[in-house]
């Protein structure tokens, strides 16, 4: 009887964990889409394909998989040349000091699920760790 109860409880826990993760993924994706549209799409475009040789695409870019780099670039901006899909881009990207860690995590989630290979959300902890590391540099 007790064994059965424990089994049922643990099954419930696993089940609720999964659904919480799914819920969070959906929430991060939806909010990430909004923030992306407001803050990123002007240059990188709604379809993530960038604009001519001015602004690099995110779709098909390997750099979006480097979530630490993404977090740092979003928060602090970037200068210098970046090569995306074999093409060099060298226009500075402005910093987005106003974006909170949660919002950065949501954008990373959206971009990587939409144009990368992710199927689940990127947690805030990833962003926090990345930002602490790049702040120290």
């Amino acid at each position: 009887m007790i064994k059965k109860l424990i089994f049922a409880l643990s099954a419930l826990t696993i089940f609720s964990c999964q659904s919480e993760q799914e819920l969070k993924t959906e929430q991060y994706f939806a909010e990430g889409y909004q923030i992306y549209t407001m803050n990123c799409a002007n240059c990188h475009q709604a379809d993530g394909k960038g604009m001519a040789n001015l602004y690099p695409p995110l779709d098909g870019s390997k750099i979006i998989r480097d979530k630490a780099a993404m977090a740092c670039i979003m928060r602090y901006g970037m200068k210098g040349t970046i090569t995306v899909n074999g093409k060099p881009f060298n226009r500075p990207m402005p910093a987005n000091a106003k974006l909170q860690e949660l919002e950065i995590a949501e954008v990373i989630t959206y971009v990587n699920m939409k144009w990368g290979k992710d199927s689940t959300y990127t947690p805030i902890a990833t962003v926090t760790a990345a930002l602490t590391a790049c702040k120290e540099h």
Binding site: N42, C43, Q45, M51, A52, L54, R91, P94
Partner: peptide, 15 residues
């Protein structure tokens, strides 16, 4: 050229 807001949109449309 360094405008982060409406200019990229305007240039895309002007193209």
């Amino acid at each position: 050229t360094t405008c982060p807001t409406i200019c990229p949109v305007m240039k895309r449309q002007m193209v």
